Simulated assay, not measured.
Amino acid sequence: MPLPPPQGSGAPATGAPAKPGFFSRGGGWQDVVGGIADALAGQPIYQTAQRDQRQRAFELEQARLQNAQREQDHNWQWQNWVQQQIWKQAHPDDNFTQYITAAGIDPRSAEGQNLYRQRAESMAAPPLVAVDGFDAAGNPTKTFMPRTGVNADPQPAPSAPAVGMIRNGYRFQGGDPKDRNNWVPVGGAPSGGGATFR
């Protein structure tokens, strides 16, 4: 999956500008005439202007070279980043990605992203799950169970006791197990309800 490089030339120009001839525009004759004019005027007007012009040309050339170097560095960084991304895709650094890849699941697919999300939710969840329930006497209880995995049901359905089941000296007659009237004493248990349910 190579990505296109950013726009730009990338490399600085290597050709040097051609020097003008002596009698052409910008040639050496201007320096000779300017030097004579400065001598007659008694002030270095032409030489100062020429020095300033050469300084500006030098600064412009330095700025051009710096921009070209910056663009070349940017292109190199971009190409380096692309190569790193390609390498990371080919060499995942975590075991989970290696496992789902070995199972034939593309980590970038919807199924792979769903597995990553489930794993993240499982890692963020507490290690224990509180399950609400009721004992035989109808008292509310809270049981802490270890989380068993990514797809674990945090609230298992409470199982109702079977009709005729005996618990703590009481037989279940059916109906709502939380209702005390659905439990009758068996054996020598007093009918006053002195037994406790656990």
Rank of each mutant, 00 (worst) to 15 (best):
residue 161 P to A: 02
residue 165 M to C: 09
residue 62 Q to K: 13
residue 131 V to G: 01
residue 35 G to R: 03
residue 189 A to P: 01
residue 152 A to D: 09
residue 77 Q to E: 11
residue 16 A to M: 14
residue 156 P to Q: 04
residue 196 T to C: 05
residue 65 L to A: 12
residue 118 Q to A: 14
residue 99 Y to K: 14
residue 126 P to W: 01
residue 167 R to T: 10
residue 23 F to Y: 09
residue 93 D to K: 13
residue 32 V to L: 10
residue 6 P to W: 01
residue 66 Q to M: 10
residue 25 R to Q: 15
residue 50 Q to D: 14
residue 117 R to W: 02
residue 84 Q to V: 11
residue 143 T to I: 13
residue 27 G to Y: 03
residue 1 M to L: 11
residue 83 Q to P: 00
residue 33 V to C: 04
residue 36 I to T: 07
residue 102 A to S: 14
residue 98 Q to Y: 01
residue 39 A to N: 13
residue 78 W to Q: 10
residue 32 V to A: 09
residue 91 H to G: 03
residue 142 K to P: 00
residue 25 R to H: 13
residue 158 P to I: 07
residue 37 A to H: 07
residue 4 P to T: 07
residue 20 P to H: 01
residue 35 G to Q: 06
residue 117 R to F: 01
residue 21 G to N: 08
residue 151 N to W: 09
residue 120 A to W: 00
residue 180 R to K: 15
residue 170 Y to N: 04
residue 72 Q to N: 10
residue 176 D to H: 00
residue 89 Q to L: 14
residue 49 A to N: 10
residue 84 Q to W: 09
residue 89 Q to Y: 12
residue 4 P to C: 02
residue 153 D to T: 14
residue 169 G to K: 01
residue 151 N to C: 08
residue 195 A to K: 03
residue 125 A to N: 03
residue 138 G to M: 03
residue 123 M to R: 11
residue 86 I to L: 12
residue 19 K to D: 11
residue 119 R to T: 07
residue 186 V to G: 03
residue 36 I to E: 06
residue 1 M to T: 10
residue 15 G to E: 15
residue 12 P to L: 09
residue 92 P to W: 00
residue 194 G to D: 07
residue 31 D to Y: 06
residue 105 I to K: 00
residue 88 K to W: 05
residue 65 L to V: 08
residue 114 N to I: 02
residue 78 W to Y: 15
residue 102 A to L: 11
residue 168 N to Q: 09
residue 50 Q to Y: 11
